[in-house]
Computed example of a mutant assay.
Amino acid sequence: MPLISQLIVNFFVAFGVVLGGAMLGGVASVLMLQPPTVQMLNLAEKMKIWAMVAAVGGTIDPIRYIENSFAEGHVSMAGKQILFIISAFIGAQLGTSLIQMICKSGTSS
């Protein structure tokens, strides 16, 4: 898969994990007769790191890959992994920001 395609996939996987998890957590809160906005905000913050992990495909493997690439002198391969992690971070952060906007607009009306 080309680099740009993989970056886009990582972005949207992380974005979707945060957005979908927080939204479904909000539905669970409604079923439990609790305010959904508080639960959604908490879940979005807690899921950010796990969304990144899901997007890049594992917890320690990308870090080991970066380490091995640098050790062997393959800086471009390590750079790609770093770009994948950054792409996933931006997706997770954007998903969290969207949940914050949704929850804040719902409480101000």
Rank of each mutant, 00 (worst) to 15 (best):
M52R: 06
I86T: 02
K48S: 08
C103G: 04
V38K: 04
L19P: 01
W50H: 01
L83T: 05
V9Y: 09
V27F: 14
Q81A: 15
F89G: 13
M77D: 15
N42D: 06
P36S: 08
F70Q: 08
V30E: 13
G106A: 08
M23F: 14
V13K: 03
A78G: 15
M23E: 08
L31H: 03
C103P: 03
T37V: 10
W50T: 12
V56T: 11
G58A: 12
K48C: 07
M32I: 05
S87K: 09
V27T: 08
M23H: 01
A22L: 04
F89N: 05
P62K: 07
N10W: 01
M40W: 08
K46I: 00
K48P: 00
Q81L: 04
I60V: 15
G106V: 07
I49P: 00
G95S: 01
S97Y: 14
L33S: 11
L24P: 01
E45C: 06
G20A: 04
P2I: 11
A14S: 14
L3Y: 08
S5V: 13
F11L: 12
P2V: 09
N68S: 10
M40D: 01
V9W: 04
V9M: 06
L33V: 10
Q93A: 13
S76E: 15
V30M: 09
P62N: 11
V56F: 07
G106K: 09
F15V: 00
G95W: 05
A88P: 04
G16Y: 07
G21F: 04
Q81S: 14
P2C: 06
T59E: 03
G20W: 00
F15M: 02
L31W: 07
G21N: 06
E72F: 10
K46P: 00
Y65R: 11
I82H: 06
E72R: 13
E67A: 12
F15C: 00
S105N: 11
G57A: 11
G16S: 15
H74Q: 14
V18C: 04
K48Q: 14
Q39L: 12
P62Q: 06
I8L: 07
M52D: 02
A71Y: 08
E67L: 13
S87H: 09
L94M: 13
G58S: 11
H74Y: 15
Q81R: 13
I60P: 02
